[in-house]
Amino acid sequence: MPDGKVALHFEEIAKAFSRQKVLNGVNLSLQGGEIVLLLGANGSGKSTLLRIAADLLRPDSGRRKVLLGERNATAQEVGYLGHNSMLYADLSVYENLAFFSQLSGGLAEALIDAWALQDIRNSLARDLSKGQLARLSLARAFLPAPSIVFLDEPTSALDERGVQILLREIGKVRELGGLVLIATHDIARLAAYAQRVLVLQQGKMACEEALGLGGSSAKALPFYHSINR
């Protein structure tokens, strides 16, 4: 539960990987209480942006601020899901969650219930199906009740039940005043639940728009579709 206004600020964030400029001066300001979609073509820098936002990567230049009220958000208040599962293949579902919850707080049991993982509680992570693994990774990302959540393509491997749970959980974060930023291609399913959409193109923020009712969009979505032609 955020004890102040949640905010995210990016000022001229730039990042290059071996001669390739991935982010080229990104400026961004987001407030809590919103679910925001981050769109962009493959390779446009969405993943890099999320990693910098989660403080896993240092930008080459520019400033990143993730705030809870007046102070910086701590690592436990931030949740992140990337392309890798961030789990241990040799540990069971319960052991994985227990391990991370012992480090950051939160209860493994509560998460197992919330994400409907009781049936596979004792299965090793290496034996899970792709969908089950995706659900487990998401459960880990929501440890221990973060106020700010960054998700990188969360629905790509999820089954329908998983998507329902995901929507419920990000809805909860939003209701409590938190911020959820999701990089995705799955506009069809998520646009209706989001309040804002951002389009990243060639390392810069190309378009930003608050979504209308039911995810209706006047410029951002059409713009995004047009550049993906």
Partner: peptide
């Protein structure tokens, strides 16, 4: 490394 679990640990504020 294979699953980026190290990132997960860092995200716990360790």
């Amino acid at each position: 490394l294979v699953s980026s679990a190290m990132d997960g640990i860092r995200l716990c504020g360790v």
